[in-house]
């Protein structure tokens, strides 16, 4: 079974949250909002490239816009295989976490 790194997990979750408008900027902003920290754009793209190679994510070229200096957007979506891998990976974490009491945890 293919395992996912934490950054891959968060990028995939951000894509799912931003569907159908998941592209570089929206993924970056979603991660910044939810994680309270900025993930470098290059890191996001490096992970997206890896995920695409694994067949977990597929990309689609969008329209070029003036505010982007005439450059096109690239939209991402999670494939069925990707969703299964993400689910399995998160379940692994959940199983590990189950029953563990952490200082400062709210639940």
């Amino acid at each position: 079974m293919t395992t996912l790194k934490q950054t891959e997990q968060v990028v995939m979750l951000a894509i799912l949250r931003k569907q159908p408008d998941a592209y570089g900027v929206s993924i970056y902003e979603e991660l910044e909002k939810r994680l309270n920290k900025a993930v470098p754009m290059a890191t996001i793209y490096a992970n997206l490239e890896t995920l695409e190679k694994k067949g977990f994510v597929k990309s689609k070229q969008g329209q070029a816009t003036a505010e982007r200096g005439g450059r096109a957007k690239m939209f991402f979506e999670i494939t069925g295989k990707g969703q299964m891998a993400l689910n399995a990976s998160l379940q692994q974490l959940d199983r590990l976490r189950a029953g563990v009491k952490l200082v400062g945890a709210t639940t």
């Binding site: 592209y23 900027v25 754009m41 490239e49 982007r68 450059r71 096109a72 690239m74």
Partner: peptide, 14 residues
């Protein structure tokens, strides 16, 4: 990477 260089630049410009 060549494939995403322009896309990344577009995102950064946006």
């Amino acid at each position: 990477p060549e494939k995403t260089a322009q896309v990344q630049l577009g995102d950064l410009q946006e």
